[in-house]
Design a protein around this nucleic acid. Structure first.
Lengths: 132, 132
DNA sequence: ATCAATTGCGTTATGCTATAACGTGTGCGA
DNA sequence: TCGCACACGTTATAGCATAACGCAATTGAT
């Protein structure tokens, strides 16, 4: 999907996420944007919806937070299979793609005649820096 | 992990989940247990915490719901890598384990020196029956 | 036997996450 | 110029989850 010109609100949200070192919740984003005139959650959620649709932002289901896509130019989000390693100490997220895993999962789904639409692969634990 | 004797509340919650045809949210469970004396969300969440700890219930992060483990005797939950295919039409969930996927993910994590603790693999889409 | 620690339980209150429903303004093609 | 699509703003509400208090029962060491 080609990403259209972002609107003002979308740009503000996207910039915050791009600069962040860790995933942010919608309400954290809201707080960071109060100075730019944001007042209500919907302003954030509406921008996030579009950014998710464009594939430039990912939602981390297991922690109700959002991150900017780490590989926005690779078109990997188009096939949907993205995985995340989330450090529970420092909050850092490593985004990765593994075609082997993809194929294996897709094969299984196919064998079940299950039609996949969205996938979530999230591993929580501790990154190399934070591991005891 | 061996599952200790369940308390009254834990049993009530577990029974509801076992009988359910689809995952249930904590508040749905609460409503179903009002007749048995449940009054507050915490009664449900506390029971769920224990059932999750014992590995007899899974949490579906992407839909904020809970299901009874489909393979409680296989000890598969001990290695943590469980995947779910969730039908967005009928709500049915297929739980499965794929060692190939497991190993592949584990290898990647190892290469990053990332220490995994909890994993989430959830595919949303449409099951064979519901696919258009 | 008794005391302390642990665990489960109940209740109230609160906080965090997400969306419904309404109305406004703007741009653009028929 | 009319109608439509879309972004936006606001208020209110729904849905998910936990904090903090206190009580009762159990256990196990002294």
């Amino acid at each position: 999907m080609t990403t259209p010109m972002l609107t003002k609100n979308q740009s503000l949200v996207f910039d915050i996420l791009t600069k962040a070192e860790a995933p942010l919740s919608a309400y954290t984003i809201l707080d960071k944007l109060r100075d730019q005139g944001f007042r209500a959650p919907l302003q954030v959620y509406r921008a996030l919806d579009k950014l998710l649709e464009y594939g430039v932002v990912h939602r981390l289901e297991s922690i109700n937070s959002f991150v900017a896509c780490a590989h926005p130019n690779e078109d990997c989000h188009s096939h949907g299979l993205v995985a995340f390693a989330i450090c529970e100490s420092c909050g850092q997220v490593i985004e990765f793609h593994d075609h082997e895993v993809d194929h294996r999962l897709m094969d299984w789904l196919k064998s079940q005649k299950f039609k996949a639409e969205k996938s979530t692969i999230e591993i929580r634990g501790h990154c190399a820096n934070c591991a005891a």
